[in-house]
């Protein structure tokens, strides 16, 4: 078994001293495709924000390390509605943000801006034709492609997506899932995807993290989605 990328041990997660999830205990292996599932308000986003380092782990242990034993490089895809449409940015400008990891003085003075990488990422997401369009004018599915391209431009080890299929028609959902599957296989990425439903994507997940009533349970997808197991954990019905 490989060294886990992410490891929670008896962790307690939450905001401002208020615990949202307790007894969090799981590991994520490299190159897995993990669905973080649960109802609205169950703590999925809290878990994702802790993983990304946006909020600290309140208690217990949370460790994550990338290929060079430092912090793993995350490519983050936020909920598309979170980004303010007032900004006059093209899709190209949005993807360019993925290259802003370093404060490089001299390349900037020379006008080098990672244009090749940006165009490559847009092409990989089937969004080359959107590059010069205003990001705020794009449809939900197009925005999602651009945000995934931005995440790829960070050259990530882990791709973390927050409800990427929300508000998108079924055809586009299928196309985006196909794209993610392709990235996992070709780029050997670890993918974490928050969702509150599991119809379209359950075939892709290798593992599922269930969040409910302040608790988190993780397991392989087949085990977690079996009717008996679900009833046992959450008294829920699929």
């Amino acid at each position: 078994m490989k060294e886990p990328l992410i490891k929670f041990k008896h962790a307690c997660l939450g905001y401002g001293g208020n615990p949202v999830l307790t007894g969090v205990d799981f590991e994520i292996q490299p190159q897995s495709f993990v669905g973080i599932l649960g109802h609205n308000g169950s703590g999925k986003t809290t878990l994702l924000k802790t993983l990304l380092g946006l909020i600290p782990c309140m208690k217990g242990q949370f460790t994550s390390h990338g290929a060079n034993l430092g912090l793993p490089r995350y490519g983050y895809v936020p909920q598309k509605e979170r980004l303010d449409p007032i900004y006059p940015l093209s899709a190209h400008d949005v993807v360019a943000m993925g290259t802003y990891r370093k404060l490089e003085f001299f390349p900037r003075l020379r006008g080098k801006d990672g244009r090749g990488l940006i165009e490559h990422c847009l092409a990989a997401c089937g969004a080359s034709h959107l590059g010069q369009k205003a990001y705020s004018d794009l449809s939900g599915g197009q925005k999602q492609r651009v945000l995934i391209a931005r995440a790829l431009a960070t050259e990530p080890e882990i791709l973390a997506l927050d409800e990427p299929l929300a508000g998108i028609d079924i055809t586009t959902q299928k196309a985006l899932l196909k794209l993610l599957k392709q990235f996992k296989e070709q780029r050997h990425l670890t993918i974490l995807m928050v969702s509150h439903r599991i119809q379209a994507e359950k075939g892709l997940f290798t593992h599922i993290v269930w969040c409910d009533e302040g608790q988190v349970v993780m397991g392989p997808v087949d085990e977690m989605l079996s009717h008996g197991r679900l009833s046992e954990i959450f008294k829920a019905e699929l």
């Binding site: 380092g53 490519g75 900004y87 943000m97 802003y100 990891r101 404060l103």
Partner: peptide
């Protein structure tokens, strides 16, 4: 002008800025 990227990033998407180590 010189730090336009940084000001834009932290204004537009603060979470993204943190994940990029800014």
């Amino acid at each position: 002008f010189f730090f336009q990227r940084e000001f834009l990033l932290v204004s537009y998407d603060r979470d993204m800025a943190v994940t990029l180590g800014r």
